[in-house]
Simulated scan of single mutants.
Amino acid sequence: MSLSVPTGGAVDLRVEPVDEVLAFVERSLQTCLDPNTVVRKRRSVGARTDRDTWVRIERRQIGKIGDQGWNGTEQAARVTDVAQPSWRGCVVWHDAEDSVMWRADETGLLPAEPIGTAVLSEAPELSDDWWWRFNASLDALAAHGTNRVATPDTETITQSLVTRSIRSVWPGDLDTTVEQWVPAHADLNWANMTAPVFCLFDWEDWGNAPRGLDSASLWACSLAVPALADRVRRERRADFAGRDGKLMTLFACSKILGPDAHPQDPRRGPARRMAEEIVQELRVG
């Protein structure tokens, strides 16, 4: 089935027409989407339904869908003791005129509003109870068992990817070997959590990853607000203390300091300072 989004090249669903996509999803899931609630992101669109649920629609290149598929939200429904929306059902289809797949997952509504954009420039108001539930959910997730492999930014995380990313910024003989792999959300940022009630959503990329990936990712998203970045490190200190946590911090910093990063990113200074400290620690250790 071919819908209205143009084929070929990069597609940004924030600007492309998606009316036909939304109409197809409505027919398939037998519901109506509220146009006043539509949220458009680069590769996904979401909206509230007339039965008080939420539908998230994603477009993904077939080459970005590995052997494990891309049913992360569905598979995450098996994870217990993690605050997340309940999964209700889905529809998946192949665009006949392009090398892409579409997927629409229907879930329960979020218990509160998303905290903000992925990267924050101001500190949010988060209670001690919020941080407790945040920690409890991440700890429960890491204790879960799965055969899935995390796909941050839709790229399967491997030892090779970790090494390549780190050495793209810090070349040399630094040992980048990961020791412990545990389940991670793999897209942990401030746009995928709610407050004042904690809830973690957008589970399409979760799976096994080096311990500390989620904590380092959220820390990197907080660097423009030093007090918030420090709070993340305090709350997840067990993740950051070990060798894997240090490697994941470098992995996160490589996205800020690498050749494709924005030169005016306000996080570059603190990321560089932390990275220099960690590189020294790893080389000495």
Results as ranks from 00 to 15, higher is better:
W70N: 14
A96R: 10
S168N: 07
L174S: 05
M101P: 01
P196W: 10
R103H: 03
A136P: 10
H94I: 10
T146V: 11
D205T: 15
A136L: 09
H144F: 15
F201A: 01
Q180R: 11
L174H: 05
D95S: 07
D173W: 06
A150E: 08
D81T: 01
W190P: 01
D205Y: 13
P85K: 04
L141G: 05
P85N: 03
V79L: 02
E204K: 03
P183E: 04
A195F: 11
T176K: 02
L109Q: 13
A112M: 03
D128F: 00
E106Y: 03
M101A: 11
S165K: 14
R78T: 12
V100Q: 01
V178K: 01
N189C: 12
D95N: 13
I115E: 07
M101E: 14
P152Q: 07
A140M: 03
V82N: 03
L161R: 15
F134W: 08
P152G: 09
V169L: 00
R164K: 13
D205G: 06
W206S: 08
H144Y: 14
W206C: 05
E204C: 07
E97D: 15
G172V: 02
A150C: 07
L200M: 12
N189P: 00
A136N: 10
L126G: 05
S168V: 04
T107S: 10
D129V: 09
W181R: 04
I115D: 07
A186Q: 08
I157N: 08
P114I: 11
W132Q: 10
R103F: 01
R148F: 09
A209G: 09
Q84G: 08
L141A: 01
A96L: 10
E74H: 14
N208T: 11
V197T: 15
L174W: 01
N208A: 12
W203A: 04
A195C: 05
R88F: 09
T107Y: 03
N71T: 13
W131F: 06
V162C: 11
A209N: 03
G145A: 13
V91S: 07
W102A: 02
E179T: 05
S160F: 11
W181M: 03
V100L: 03
T80C: 07
V162Y: 09
F201L: 02
R148Q: 12
A184K: 09
T151C: 14
L141S: 06
D187T: 13
A195I: 03
E179Y: 01
D139G: 08
R211K: 14
Q84K: 15
F201S: 02
C199H: 00
A184S: 15
L200S: 05
E74K: 15
W87Y: 15
L120P: 12
G212D: 05
D153A: 14
D153M: 14
G145S: 15
T163G: 10
W170Q: 06
A76S: 14
A143L: 12
N135I: 10
W170H: 13
D187P: 05
S168Y: 01
A96T: 02
A209R: 06
A83I: 01
A143D: 14
G207N: 04
A140E: 03
T158P: 11
F198Y: 05
W181D: 04
W70M: 12
T156S: 12
V182E: 04
R164Q: 15
T117D: 08
H144N: 11
G116P: 02
V82W: 00
W132S: 08
